[in-house]
Design a protein around this nucleic acid. Structure first.
Lengths: 223, 223
DNA sequence: AAGTGGTCTAGACCACTTA
DNA sequence: AAGTGGTCTAGACCACTTC
């Protein structure tokens, strides 16, 4: 119900400022009760997908501008722009069963399958990002078949599933022992940790932890 | 209804991890229907105020301390929005002579005067941000006369000089000994460091270092 | 078995907008 | 006056957790 409306908006079937069927119309056409239609539209409004005006109707909201310097960038592009050489070391790529936390992060059922990849990104042979990623198989069934020495997970995923929403947290943490090994840093070196989830058409595409050594990387945003 | 529950949580009447009355209990005690109680709890869960587990119950969630990574926000507003108490401790406020680096940062001449303030921002008496700020006297000649127990530097500066441009770097660092003391953290605790400069009408208004303990604060950006 | 949250239906009253 | 969203009640079935 809610996802059907969102799909119509993301596919462009209902363009910006298009008038969305009223709650009563949705009751008739979709065969749901008004409370259900109301809840769906109310939640879409809270997410900023639509705007609602009492007495007038509901309308597709203009897309939020996004991705300043802190947006979702491909680390490979970043490195190449600096004129350096980018190399990926594939540490792990396998299917795994969702535990409690992972299931919640990917919005899947506990016990469902997920794809797990761990990759170290090097800039001029210096480890600069540890990418620990879980992928929703329903969105990217061929994920594990990719050649991760050539295509970044980011590039592959954005090519098959346009990003509709991003949730991102930035923290400062101390690395775990195994992370220190992979990044070739000391245990006492503070790191930037970015935890990011991306959605496409109301499904979680991927949940990723990006770990950067504090001495080798910083985030920049100018506006 | 929703606000009553939120009030009980914010006043500490229901502490973290406290079990919240079930939907049916709220129906009886507050005299609302179950749909209303359900909606209130569902929305509080979406806001991260409570967590819900099917079959078990609803519980007060640990306080989130996160902020938008994009854009310059006033730490005081952030804290107040979370329903906490904001307090500033003024550590230092004086005029200083620009050295080489500072002159470059403020785009002033070496030997020119600048204003320097150091403030610890507390959320519910917990130090959460160390603000080490230099201000261009040409833009804010009255800066040192402000009452920094009432108005934040951010609020004062934005009121007299609208921000035209911002440059911002985000890093992970280990704190200096004197910073550890002011923030009441261990030397090994990684911190988020934001270095920010803002311009108004082509002049640098201020250059500021914002240091957040990694365990108490994270940046958030959704788009 | 009893209690919990997750979800839905059917019906109602209100405030607001448009005509 | 008719249609819109805003909100609420009352009742129901389901999946899950705990005892």
């Amino acid at each position: 119900m809610k996802t059907e409306i969102r799909a119509r908006i993301e596919t462009g079937e209902w363009p910006v400022n298009h008038r969305i069927p009223s709650e009563n119309e949705l009751v008739d056409t979709l065969g749901v009760s008004r409370m259900t239609a109301n809840r769906a539209l109310r939640e879409l409004a809270n997410e900023g997908v639509i705007t609602r005006v009492q007495g007038k109707g509901s309308f597709v909201a203009p897309k939020k501008r996004s991705a300043l310097a802190l947006g979702v960038r491909n680390i490979a592009d970043e490195i190449l722009e600096r004129g350096a050489v980018h190399r990926m070391d594939l540490i792990l790529a396998q299917a795994e069963t969702c535990g409690h936390e992972l299931a919640a992060a990917l919005e899947l059922d506990i016990g469902a399958q997920s794809f797990h990849s761990v990759i170290v990104h090097n800039e001029d042979d210096v480890p600069i990002q540890l990418e620990d990623r879980f992928v929703n198989p329903a969105v990217a069934p061929d994920y594990l078949k990719q050649d991760f020495s050539r295509t970044t997970p980011n590039a592959f995923l954005t090519s098959i599933a346009p990003i509709a929403k991003t949730e991102q947290f930035i923290e400062a943490v101390l690395p775990q022992p195994w992370e220190c090994k992979l990044l070739a840093i000391a245990r006492s070196e503070p790191c930037i940790l970015i935890r990011r989830r991306t959605w496409s058409q109301d499904r979680v595409v991927t949940a990723v932890r990006l770990l950067y050594p504090g001495s080798r990387y910083r985030l920049q945003s100018n506006f």
